[in-house]
């Protein structure tokens, strides 16, 4: 089971999902909560950026993250020849 292609695939997967989870944390806990006081001057329409990220924007980013992961993993599956076909 344990061969080079497996561990290369797994390392690539862990690297990808780590990057995506950093973005996940930055938009929600970062911009939406902890960094909000620093972003007060940036407006999205009638509300401040932190408010918008917390109540709307982070959800759109979550969506993009999941679809990016699904697309990139399909590529990795084929590249390392571990896909289901």
């Amino acid at each position: 089971m344990e061969n080079d292609s497996d561990s290369g695939y797994w390392a690539a997967n862990v690297r990808l999902l780590s990057i995506l989870l950093v973005i996940w944390a930055v938009v929600s806990f970062g911009m939406g909560i902890i960094l909000r006081p620093m972003l007060m001057d940036i407006k999205v329409g009638g509300v401040d950026l932190g408010f918008w990220m917390a109540q709307n924007g982070s959800i759109y980013v979550f969506l993009i993250l999941i679809f990016v992961y699904a697309v990139m993993m399909n590529g990795l599956d084929r590249q390392y020849n571990v896909d289901e076909e």
Partner: peptide, 9 residues
């Protein structure tokens, strides 16, 4: 809002 959607990531 974030708690009940972010879990899907």
């Amino acid at each position: 809002l974030m708690g009940w959607t972010g879990g899907y990531v």
